[in-house]
């Protein structure tokens, strides 16, 4: 493939949306209220929509007659480039909102830069995504404040979720080979430079939510290079079930 770096770069962004969208989809019908079910589904739909735009573009530049679904469903686990954060399970609603917020802040910072990409297609997808993700961040941020500064039980539960998810945040700012190559070409975003703004913003909101910022010096990483957590296999078993069981069919 000519554009191997660009291809990998697109997947690196889109896989996060796919996997997070998949996680949110699992929740539909099982949330704390009908209203939150509807909201969660909307976020999931936004993410799946973004995923499709990215994959369609990746399929086009692959030059291999691929479709968006080939990319979404027919890779080996090691081929998925999403960060560990987004594949974490829906342990409880605090985890769902925590995972969402910790990703949304990064996601918006990323898209805000990506809209200025030299690559017109990526810039356009980013522009559209900014509006969606701004809302996601507002929604998840509001919920963290409610749960963090709600009841004693909810504070404990929200803190537990933040403590467990925090170790996955640092990976967001790792630069892959594709990242570096794309930054050099003026196409990609230097995510390592987003780190400071990210932690500043997240810290402000968590503090507002009366939550403690975890003080740790060991972070988990690996997703970007295809080394995932144990959760990923089960997630993919669901995601890929139909395409694996009935290969080469149209749906």
């Amino acid at each position: 493939m000519e554009n191997q770096h660009l291809y990998n770069y697109i997947l690196g962004i889109a896989d996060n949306s796919l996997i997070l969208g998949q996680r949110l989809g699992e929740l539909c019908g099982h949330g704390p209220s009908l209203e939150t079910d509807i909201a969660g589904t909307n976020i999931s739909l936004d993410l799946i929509g973004q995923t499709r735009s990215f994959y369609q573009y990746a399929a086009k530049i692959s030059g291999e007659n691929k479709t968006e679904d080939d990319i979404a469903f027919l890779r080996l686990e090691r081929g998925y480039k999403n960060v560990l954060l987004v594949e974490q399970p829906n342990t409880h609603f605090g985890y769902v909102m925590g995972r969402q917020y910790l990703f949304d802040v990064f996601h918006l910072l990323l898209l805000n830069e990506l809209q200025f990409s030299k690559d017109q297609t990526l810039a356009a997808i980013a522009k559209k995504g900014i509006k969606e993700v701004s809302y996601h961040k507002r929604f998840s941020g509001d919920w963290i404040k409610r749960l963090g500064d709600g009841t004693q039980e909810s504070t404990t539960k929200m803190q537990e979720a933040i403590d467990d998810l925090w170790p996955y945040t640092d990976e967001l700012f790792d630069m892959t080979e594709a990242d570096t190559a794309m930054v050099q070409e003026g196409i990609g975003v230097d995510v390592s430079k987003l780190k400071e703004s990210y932690y500043k913003e997240v810290t402000t909101l968590l503090t507002q939510a009366t939550l403690k910022i975890p003080q740790i010096d060991y972070f988990s990483r690996g997703g970007k290079n295809g080394v995932h957590s144990e959760h990923m296999g089960y997630l993919l078993a669901d995601l890929q079930y139909m395409q694996r069981t009935y290969p080469n069919m149209q749906w």
């Binding site: 209203e35 509807i38 509001d142 409610r146």
Partner: peptide, 10 residues
Amino acid sequence: DMALENARDV
């Protein structure tokens, strides 16, 4: 605030 957000989604 939540009512507004929910209204937007519903």
